[in-house]
Nucleic acid binder design. Structure first.
Length: 298
DNA sequence: GGCCAGGCTAGCA
DNA sequence: TGCTAGCATGGC
C-alpha cells in the first residue's frame, strides 16, 4: 500500500533522516541507498511497520510511505496523521527562516541546516518515557537506557526482510516491577517515574489522547501533578511528542550551552536570559530550539 | 578522579 | 514562594 503527502516549503529529507543515525536505535532503520526511514507505528494494539521516503528530492517534495497490504482504512488514516505530525509536513519552515534571519548570528545556522526538520516521536507514551529517562543524564547514557527498556519490552515486527523493535506499550511497562528497570541501571526514582506513569496511563488516570487538542495550560495541569514530571519534561513532550511550534525549554542545559556557543555569551545564559533572547524567536521558539540542539551535535 | 549531564522531589525557611 | 541537598549513573 502506497500513500503520499505534499510537503509545504523546504524539506531536506536526507538531512532529516541522517540525524537519528548519530544515535542508532532498534526502533528504526535508516537507509541511505534508497533514502528511506522505517519504523513501526502503534495503532491501538497493533504495531504497523511503515517505510517513508520522498520524491523528488528538491522542489515540491512529496513524502511517500509504504506499509503492509492488510492495513485497514481506519489504521491508514491514523498512520497518515502520525506521519504528517512526525515529519512536520504542515510547518511553513520558510516563515521560520524569515523570522530567524533577522538575527545575524542565525544566518550561518540556517544555511548549515537549511531544509532540516526534526523527526518527532512516534506516540505520546514513547515521548513521555524518553523524556523522563533523559532527565539530568547525558544524552548518550539516556539513549542507552532507552534501548535497554526497548529490549526488555521485547516486541518486534517483521517487515520487508528486516526486524524492527517496537517501543513497549503502556500495558507492558505497567506490568514491570521497579527492580526490572533497576537491573538495567535505572535509578530507583527513574524506575518509579517511568513505571508509575505507565500505570497512570493504563488505569485511565491520564488520558494521553486528550492532549492532542488540549491547550498548553491544560497539558501542564494534566501532567505536572504526576510524580517525576516537571516543567522541563512537559516542555520536551510539547516539542517532541505533540509537535507544538512555540515552546521554549528555557531551563534546559543543552539549550543554554547552544546559545552560549552561538551568541558567544559567557557564562552560559540562565533561564531568564534565555527567555529574554527568545522573545524575538516567536512564534517559532520550538524550531529555534530544535536547531540550537542540533548545533550541539556537530 | 572529579565534575557534569537536554531535572525532579522533598524538606526547610 | 524560594532555595537546596540528594538522587544515581555513565561520559569525558
Amino acid at each position: 500500500m502506497i500513500n503520499g503527502l505534499k510537503v509545504r516549503g523546504p524539506f531536506d529529507f536526507e538531512k532529516a533522516i541522517r540525524r537519528p543515525l548519530a544515535r542508532p536505535s532498534k526502533l528504526f532503520i535508516v537507509r541511505m541507498d534508497d533514502v528511506s526511514y522505517t519504523r513501526a507505528i502503534r495503532v491501538q494494539s497493533r504495531a504497523i511497520p511503515v517505510t517513508v521516503s520522498v520524491t523528488p528530492s528538491h522542489d515540491d517534495v512529496v513524502l511517500h510511505w509504504t506499509m503492509p497490504d492488510d492495513v485497514s482504512f481506519e489504521e491508514s488514516m491514523h498512520i497518515e496523521t502520525t506521519i504528517r505530525r512526525m515529519f512536520c509536513v504542515d510547518e511553513d519552515v520558510e516563515a521560520f527562516y524569515e523570522t530567524m534571519s533577522r538575527r545575524p548570528m542565525w544566518n550561518e545556522l540556517i544555511n548549515r541546516f537549511y531544509g532540516l526538520r526534526p523527526i518527532l516521536d512516534g506516540d505520546l507514551f514513547e515521548s513521555m518515557v524518553n523524556v523522563i529517562i533523559g532527565q539530568q543524564l547525558n544524552v548518550k547514557f539516556a539513549s542507552t537506557l532507552v534501548e535497554r527498556l526497548i529490549d526488555l519490552g521485547d516486541e518486534r515486527v517483521e517487515w520487508e526482510g528486516s526486524t524492527l523493535a517496537v517501543f513497549p506499550s503502556p500495558e507492558r511497562v505497567a506490568s514491570w516491577a521497579y527492580e526490572d528497570l533497576r537491573a538495567l541501571s535505572f535509578s530507583q526514582r527513574k524506575a518509579e517515574y517511568v513505571i508509575d506513569f505507565a500505570r497512570a496511563v493504563v488505569d485511565g488516570r491520564v488520558n494521553l489522547s486528550k492532549l492532542w487538542t488540549a491547550t498548553e495550560e491544560e497539558i501542564y495541569e494534566t501532567l505536572l501533578p504526576l510524580r517525576g514530571i516537571g516543567r522541563w519534561t512537559v516542555e520536551c513532550v510539547l516539542l517532541f511528542g505533540l509537535g507544538r511550534r512555540d515552546v521554549l525549554p528555557a531551563a534546559d542545559i543543552g539549550l543554554q550551552n547552544a546559545i552560549h556557543k552561538l551568541y558567544g555569551i559567557t557564562p552560559r545564559p540562565d533561564e531568564d536570559e534565555v527567555r529574554r533572547l527568545a522573545e524575538l524567536w516567536r512564534p517559532w521558539r520550538s524550531w529555534a530550539t530544535y536547531y540550537l540542539w542540533q548545533s550541539l551535535n556537530e
